Every structure is written in structure tokens, then in C-alpha cells.
Simulated scan of single mutants.
Amino acid sequence: MRTERKLSRWERVFARLDREPSRPAHIDVPRMSRHRVVLFSATLAFYLAIVWAVVVSSWLVRLDWQVMFFRPYQQWPQIHAFLDYYVVLGQRGPTAVMVAAWLGWRSWRQHTLRPLLTLAAALLLLNITVGAAKYGMGRLGPHYATVIGSNEMWRGGDIFPSGHTANAVVTWGILAYLASTPRARRWLSALSAVTSLGVGMTTVYLGTHWLSDVLLGWAAGLLILLALPWFESPIATAEVRILALRDRVRSRRAAPVPAPAPVGAPSLVLGPRVAEQPVTAREPVTASRASRSPAYLAPGPHMARAERTPVTPVGSRRPPHSDRASRGTASARPLAGG
């Protein structure tokens, strides 16, 4: 009796993935709704309020100094080693590689470039906005502060807002933004919020950022996620152009290559005089003609030089002339006698 082979765990996983549709019938693209516009406006107001509070050295700056003097890394040194690794979840390089690998797999499965292009647009906006704010305000970090109680603005620093926090909000929040179901979007939104909150507080614990830096980083990352629906149209246009370029490249590679001309075919000769001459077909070379040996070669096997027969004809090589003999006999001189 023939029995079927039992599939392993990985084979069952890949078999389940193969049953998924290769191209979804409908991709839910977020739109800039009224609710999202209200959230974007509130987040922008919060962002500007934090910047103003730091510029005028308000209570927020005093709170920054109090947390810095508290030195959390000295209060709880037992979690220092773990948080040194946890803060990597906010670094742009490792997180971008991990998220791009997942979104690349989704793009390959769904035959669409939207996940990768959305990630690229979000990271581009993050670099432009956060980078401009960092170098524009030039705030120094806690380890490089010069005057106690000062806001340390416009002194050549680059920590305001926190890049780790903003990157964690955008990189992990893009998974929730691209989720295919509302339930997955809710779970991924909560997970990205907890992750970014933990990364921001870790930078405060390590003493690399002020507390106000983390608050502004959260606001900066959330602004980018809320503004992404405005860039859906350019993302769709870029996808169409990239796919059209790919199709043109494939069509050029698949074009038939012209067959080479045969050996005996006439070739095109440049020049006006030569081109006017008719091209005559050459006589085909037969096997008997090709196998015919030259007349000047002696037949037979190879022999030594002394044993070879002469190949030149015997006798004089001068052609015979009949008039020489008659002329010589007619004009013969008499012998002078004796």
C-alpha cells in the first residue's frame, strides 16, 4: 500500500505561502482623511511648542538638566548591558536593512514596488527634515554641555531632535502603515509605538540625549508617517515608470539576434564603382577538387631526400623552335680545309 510522505514544518510553511495570491485584488492605500489632517496639525503644533520651549529656556530645559544630573545609568547599572543592544533598534542602518528585507519579500510576492518605494520616500523625508532641524538648531548633548541651565542651542551640535527616536518611529511605523488588514495595522501600530518609546527612553538613560530631544524626535517621526498619504501619487507614478523601464529592458534582451551570413554569400562592398558591378556566384568547391593534389608534388609515401625521384621533367627546359634547326643548316659555313 502506497502512503504519502509527511511534510516537514518548513515545507508546510512554504506550501501555505504558495497558496497566497500572487497579486492582491485590492491594495488598501491610506488617504489623507479629515481625521489624519487633524492629527497632523496637532502633532505639528506639539513640535513647534517643544522647539519654542527649548529656545526660550523654559521649564522643559530645567527638566532636562534635572534628568541629566539624576544619571539614570548610575541608578540602574544592571540594565546597562541590555539597553546598549536595545538602542540598536533605533539606528538607521540596521533597522533599514531589516525592514527593507521584509518589504522586499512582500514586493516580490505581490508583484508591486509600492512597499519599497514607500519606505524609500519615508527615509528620504526623515533625512531631510530631521537632518535640517539638527544642523539648523545645533544643540549640544548632555555629555558636551558647557553652561549649567543653558539650552545649549546653536553651538555646533546635532542631537535636537533625537535621530534614534525619529528613526524608530518611522522605520517600525511603516510596517503598520503598509499593513493589509485593520487588525494587523492596530497591532503593528502598538508595537511600533512601544519600540520607539523604549528607544527614546534608552537614549535618555544612556545620557546621549536630553528628554526634550526625545519628545521632538517622536513628533518628527509621527509627522512623517501622517504625511505619507500626500506622497502616494508620486510613489504610484514612480512605480509605473520603473516597471515600464524594466519591460523595455526585457524586450531589448529578448529581441532576436540576426543570423550570421553564410561563408559563400556575397558581402556588401562600399564604393560607387565597385557597387555597380554585378555580383557573380562563385563556383562551388567540390570534394574532388578539394582532394586533388597539386601537380608539383610527388605521389606516394614520404621518403628520404636521397630516395626521392626528381619532380622536374628530364631534358632541356627550353621550348623547341623549328626555325632554328633549318636556319642553322642553311647558313652553315664551309670548313676551311687543309
Results as ranks from 00 to 15, higher is better:
76 W>F: 15
138 G>R: 02
6 K>P: 14
82 F>Y: 06
230 W>H: 03
20 E>Y: 10
274 V>R: 15
61 V>S: 11
84 D>L: 07
264 G>L: 05
260 P>C: 03
281 A>F: 01
311 V>L: 12
147 V>I: 13
240 V>W: 07
226 L>W: 03
209 H>C: 12
158 D>Y: 08
178 L>F: 08
259 A>V: 07
290 A>G: 13
242 I>W: 15
91 Q>H: 14
12 R>H: 04
99 V>W: 01
162 S>V: 11
211 L>A: 12
61 V>Q: 11
257 V>E: 14
223 L>G: 15
140 L>M: 08
160 F>P: 07
104 G>F: 06
85 Y>D: 13
127 N>W: 13
138 G>N: 02
304 A>N: 08
292 R>L: 06
262 P>S: 05
108 W>R: 08
40 F>N: 05
33 S>A: 11
107 S>A: 12
276 E>M: 11
335 L>Q: 10
123 L>E: 13
277 Q>D: 08
173 G>Q: 00
174 I>G: 02
142 P>I: 10
335 L>E: 12
261 A>G: 09
338 G>H: 11
55 V>M: 05
252 R>I: 15
315 G>V: 00
174 I>V: 15
194 V>Y: 01
32 M>R: 04
320 P>F: 15
216 L>Y: 00
225 L>E: 01
251 S>Q: 15
191 L>P: 11
319 P>L: 12
330 A>Q: 08
56 V>R: 14
5 R>P: 13
285 V>M: 09
218 W>K: 00
196 S>H: 02
54 V>R: 05
58 S>M: 03
19 R>K: 09
153 M>G: 01
269 V>E: 13
297 L>T: 09
212 S>C: 03
20 E>L: 14
250 R>C: 10
26 H>T: 15
105 W>G: 01
31 R>V: 06
185 R>G: 00
132 A>M: 11
30 P>N: 02
209 H>V: 12
130 V>Y: 01
231 F>W: 13
185 R>P: 01
299 P>W: 10
172 W>C: 02
50 I>E: 03
128 I>M: 06
27 I>E: 07
261 A>C: 07
252 R>P: 10
292 R>M: 05
192 S>T: 01
41 S>D: 05
126 L>D: 09
64 D>S: 09
108 W>F: 11
198 G>R: 03
97 V>P: 09
329 T>Y: 04
225 L>M: 03
128 I>D: 01
151 N>F: 00
283 E>R: 04
133 A>N: 07
11 E>F: 04
320 P>N: 05
280 T>Q: 10
265 A>Q: 12
49 A>R: 08
207 G>S: 05
271 G>R: 09
209 H>I: 11
225 L>D: 02
245 L>W: 07
115 P>S: 00
32 M>H: 03
250 R>G: 08
237 T>L: 11
78 Q>S: 13
50 I>Q: 01
67 V>G: 03
4 E>Q: 12
